Computed example of a mutant assay.
Amino acid sequence: MLRTTDRAAMTRYLFPSVGLIFFLSCATKGPSGPDPSASDVQLDPPPQGQGVQLAFPPFSVPQGEEVQRNYFMTLPSDSDLYVTRVEFRYNEGSHHCNVFKSDSLTMPEGTFTETFITLDYTKWDMFTASQREAFTWQLPPGVAIYLKAHQQICIQTHYVNASTQETPTARGKVLLNLWSMPASEVTSVAGLLFASNTRIILPPGSIDTVRKFVVKIPWDINILTLTGHFHSRGRNFWAVRFTTGEEIYRNVSWDEPPIKVFPDMGYPLIRNEQIVYYSDYYNASADTVYMGPHVENQEHSNLFMVYWPGPANGKTIYDVDQGW
């Protein structure tokens, strides 16, 4: 349900795609907002000429609810941006913060949707993400995330203020600094791969493990970061290099998953070499749990991977299907 103080401004957008629908139940200017005296996260922006700050304004996260918002803005830069450092800060209680760019959509500036329906991945490319309230990451020398001047941006954040996770101030807010480097210093552009295993069915009292082979990338790459993502029934999440069986990532903390940053220029994989990842679950409830976005009663098995060099077209690689 979208919260708005201007019902006359409600608009409906429908973007069909193969297996995915992006439904903007409405887009409206942000409301007057919750109590401004709440203690919000703060972050100084980069100095002029060294990057930009993206700000997701404060909003209410009522007790007993989960709120996921997509906030739309254009990149506040008159020139193309080559991002060499990413700096996240957001209020406690967010389950994730994913940031997307689009080359084909134009959304009203400063509007939002409140929905758990998946974005249309044919039109939105994820370029960075964090599941930790404070996360700063420096890309290797010469490697950058490329963004066009005034590019359409969507910041998606999911807050939980219920039994599995709490938002202490009942208030969400996100700040993101994108530190840049001169184009002349860029030797390679980073890419992002997002994989999701949709085969999750957990009967009451069940223990289960699911696995997924990640799509092959047909060129040599270096992995810069890996993050695994599941909900509160998740017990273990790990990823291995399929050809050798070497474990390259492990997560046993569903609400504060580690973001593994590989040293130097990253972890090398040869072309078409695969990663396989696994998720262990225990469903102690009396209800069957299925795959879905809600932390309280659904589960996920997702892998985020940033690597270089990225594809020439700048597109995110989405690998969303059933695993084993």
Results as ranks from 00 to 15, higher is better:
residue 201 I to F: 11
residue 106 T to A: 13
residue 102 S to H: 04
residue 202 L to Y: 04
residue 152 Q to I: 07
residue 40 D to N: 15
residue 323 G to P: 00
residue 60 S to F: 08
residue 315 K to C: 06
residue 149 A to D: 08
residue 136 T to A: 14
residue 33 G to N: 07
residue 62 P to M: 09
residue 254 W to N: 02
residue 324 W to F: 13
residue 146 Y to W: 02
residue 233 R to L: 13
residue 195 A to R: 03
residue 190 A to Q: 03
residue 279 S to T: 15
residue 74 T to P: 11
residue 129 A to I: 01
residue 141 P to G: 09
residue 106 T to V: 10
residue 100 F to L: 09
residue 314 G to Y: 12
residue 214 V to D: 10
residue 211 R to W: 11
residue 284 A to W: 10
residue 131 Q to T: 11
residue 323 G to Y: 00
residue 94 S to T: 06
residue 160 V to R: 00
residue 82 Y to R: 06
residue 238 W to V: 02
residue 17 S to C: 04
residue 249 Y to D: 01
residue 289 V to I: 12
residue 285 S to K: 09
residue 251 N to F: 00
residue 266 G to R: 09
residue 51 G to T: 03
residue 98 N to L: 14
residue 302 N to P: 00
residue 259 I to R: 13
residue 20 L to I: 14
residue 322 Q to L: 11
residue 26 C to K: 11
residue 228 G to E: 02
residue 265 M to C: 08
residue 57 P to G: 05
residue 194 F to Q: 10
residue 316 T to S: 13
residue 76 P to W: 04
residue 309 P to I: 01
residue 126 M to E: 15
residue 103 D to T: 03
residue 230 F to I: 11
residue 220 D to T: 04
residue 305 M to R: 06
residue 58 P to A: 10
residue 90 Y to R: 10
residue 197 N to M: 04
residue 34 P to E: 11
residue 62 P to V: 14
residue 155 I to F: 05
residue 237 F to W: 13
residue 116 F to G: 12
residue 226 L to Q: 06
residue 38 A to F: 03
residue 316 T to P: 07
residue 5 T to E: 15
residue 247 E to T: 15
residue 238 W to F: 15
residue 11 T to G: 08
residue 15 F to S: 13
residue 265 M to R: 10
residue 162 A to M: 12
residue 185 E to H: 10
residue 245 G to M: 09
residue 203 P to W: 05
residue 258 P to W: 01
residue 226 L to Y: 05
residue 83 V to Q: 03
residue 214 V to I: 15
residue 177 N to C: 10
residue 24 L to N: 13
residue 116 F to R: 12
residue 112 F to P: 00
residue 323 G to V: 01
residue 162 A to F: 13
residue 167 T to Y: 01
residue 74 T to Q: 15
residue 11 T to A: 12
residue 141 P to F: 03
residue 83 V to M: 03
residue 13 Y to D: 09
residue 123 K to Y: 07
residue 55 A to K: 13
residue 136 T to L: 07
residue 161 N to E: 04
residue 270 I to G: 14
residue 142 G to N: 08
residue 295 V to M: 01
residue 108 P to L: 04
residue 216 K to A: 15
residue 37 S to G: 04
residue 36 P to R: 10
residue 101 K to A: 09
residue 208 D to Q: 14
residue 91 N to C: 07
residue 205 G to T: 00
residue 213 F to E: 15
residue 260 K to T: 14
residue 97 C to R: 00
residue 7 R to H: 12
residue 155 I to Q: 05
residue 172 G to C: 09
residue 202 L to F: 05
residue 3 R to G: 09
residue 224 L to R: 01
residue 212 K to R: 07
residue 135 F to K: 04
residue 133 E to D: 14
residue 236 N to F: 07
residue 197 N to G: 02
residue 47 P to G: 09
residue 311 P to W: 08
residue 20 L to F: 14
residue 247 E to S: 10
residue 305 M to L: 14
residue 300 H to A: 13
residue 319 D to Y: 01
residue 239 A to M: 05
residue 53 Q to Y: 07
residue 37 S to R: 09
residue 68 Q to P: 00
residue 217 I to Y: 01
